[in-house]
Simulated scan of single mutants.
Amino acid sequence: MAKYAFPSDCPCGSGKSYKDCCFMYHMEKIHAPTPEALMRSRYAAYVLKKADYLLYSWHPDTRPAELDLNDDVKWVGLTIVGTELGVDGLEGTVEFVAKYKIGGKAAKMTEKSNFVRQGNRWYYFDGDVEE
Rank of each mutant, 00 (worst) to 15 (best):
P11F: 01
P7Q: 02
N120M: 10
F23E: 00
L38E: 05
E36G: 09
G127A: 03
S8F: 12
C21D: 00
V76W: 12
E84M: 09
M109Y: 03
K108D: 05
L38P: 07
Y124D: 11
H31Y: 04
L38R: 06
I102T: 13
K108A: 05
T110C: 07
L67G: 08
D88T: 12
T79Q: 08
K74I: 09
G82T: 04
N70M: 13
A2I: 05
V73L: 13
E91K: 13
Y43S: 05
R121S: 04
C21P: 03
L85V: 11
P64H: 14
L78R: 02
K19Q: 08
F6P: 00
Y25D: 01
I102F: 09
H26K: 01
W75I: 04
A44Y: 08
Y56N: 09
F125G: 11
E95C: 09
R40K: 05
T79W: 11
M39H: 05
T93S: 14
S113I: 05
A65Y: 09
D61Y: 15
L90V: 10
Q118G: 14
K50P: 03
G104K: 14
K19W: 00
E36Y: 08
G119W: 08
K105W: 14
K49Q: 10
S41L: 09
G77R: 07
V116Y: 13
A37F: 04
F6L: 01
G13A: 09
Y53H: 04
L78T: 04
V73G: 06
G92I: 10
D72I: 13
Y53Q: 07
D9K: 10
L38T: 07
P35H: 08
K49N: 13
Y123H: 08
C22V: 00
D9S: 12
L54W: 04
G77K: 07
H26A: 02
D9T: 13
T83N: 15
D71L: 13
L67Q: 03
T83A: 15
P33C: 01
P35V: 15
A45W: 00
P7S: 04
A51C: 09
C10W: 02
T79K: 09
L38C: 06
A44T: 04
E28W: 13
H31D: 07
V97S: 15
V87F: 10
D128Y: 11
E28G: 10
S41H: 02
F115Q: 06
L85N: 08
Y53K: 06
P64V: 09
D52A: 12
D61W: 15
N114M: 13
N114G: 13
Y100N: 09
A2F: 01
E130L: 15
A107D: 11
G89F: 12
L48C: 06
T83V: 12
G82A: 10
G13T: 10
M27G: 10
K74P: 10
F115S: 07
A45H: 00
S57H: 07
K101F: 15
D72V: 14
P11H: 05
L54H: 05
D68H: 12
G13W: 06
A32Q: 06
A5V: 02
P33M: 02
P35C: 14
V94W: 07
G104S: 15
F125M: 13
V81T: 11
Y25C: 04
D20Q: 04
N114W: 15
K3V: 03
G86Q: 04
L90W: 12
G86N: 10
C21E: 01
D9P: 12
C12Q: 00
F23M: 00
E111A: 07
K49S: 15
H59C: 15
Y124N: 02
V129S: 05
T34I: 06
D128E: 15
F6A: 01
